[in-house]
Design a binder for these strands. Sequence first.
DNA 1: ACCTGAACACCGTTCAAGT
DNA 2: ACCTGAACACCGTTCAAGT
Lengths: 201, 201
Amino acid sequence: MDHGGCGLAAALGLAAVSMRAIGAEVGLTPMALYGYFASKDDLLDWLVGRVLREVPRPDPGAPWQERLAESARGARTVAHRYPRTFPLLLSRPVVLAEAMRVVDPLYGALMEAGVPGGRVAAWERMFSTFVLGFAVSEVSGRFGEGNLGTRERRERLEPGELPAHDRLGEVLDLPVDWTAEFEEGLARLLAMIKEEGRRAG
Amino acid sequence: MDHGGCGLAAALGLAAVSMRAIGAEVGLTPMALYGYFASKDDLLDWLVGRVLREVPRPDPGAPWQERLAESARGARTVAHRYPRTFPLLLSRPVVLAEAMRVVDPLYGALMEAGVPGGRVAAWERMFSTFVLGFAVSEVSGRFGEGNLGTRERRERLEPGELPAHDRLGEVLDLPVDWTAEFEEGLARLLAMIKEEGRRAG
DNA sequence: ACCTGAACACCGTTCAAGT
DNA sequence: ACCTGAACACCGTTCAAGT
């Protein structure tokens, strides 16, 4: 199976939609897709691989902090570009060749930071879990699209049932700068990694 | 709509399956479910709410670190109990009453830790993103079920394409203690929160 | 008030048939 | 070698009908 044959790049944005819709998108009968993929799951794996290929490889000459940060920012950008496809990453094991190609520079950066070899994989999982979790929460709606309206919803509950919400008050309804919040979390993780490297080094 | 009427607790484990299957599970025609829920999405929201109700409320008398840790451990336990339903949390806005009831004690703990009011929500998102991201990665397969086999898969790529993997070698194929790794991440987050509270005075 | 059964417009997938 | 069309066993949902 060649996979590259049909102009399936057009379907990158969708995913999780039907074989019939994907087929229509590339001007093919849905059944023709089975010439390239064994199943819908196979097609979805390939789609996820294509999305991963758009995560930029960090410049090997840059310091390790920048390499980790660039990779994280790149992944978040890709999530916004393919909000339907990107969340599939959380439910697919990281065995695709494309996933390993994204992870490898992270391993390299963590080693350069001084993280001991036996702990590199754990740190990569912590780092990627933050990046993926944050990006998926953004694009698939957990963070809400502007958390406006939490106040109204709060009023439906009995007063006093959410004491901390009540104490915080209107500060909860302020708009959020998601990019700034992502950068903050990123900076904190990088500081933790640096500290881990210093301790071990 | 009463929702509680039918014995729908039996369906807690499934979710993401069909209305027909859920109906069969509770001994009802699928169409009868529309007497309780306006749509499948509605039913899924209710199911997520029920799952959230099983996340234990932390003991208000405990120190704030323990309250955050207990809530996080409880959420992870619930994820393992309902691996099919739990991942829905990442794609649903946190507006369900049950979600706010889980979040409220976290807000309270963060305030007691000394986090300034304007930053409490951001820290709660960072904390919950780690907990949800980790738990969902575990139960929906991103971490792989035992990462055995990465070596074989690596050999399919050209040698030298994954230099960091090559340098780390067999340490990548060791079994992982997920609970210990979760606890480590948790401890690090709590340390960061403590530091944030200390800085703010 | 609560449930059923048939029906509608969809799914993923198989398979025999076309060129 | 590559694609099609009909068909199968499913979906969520509507609606008229039953008790």
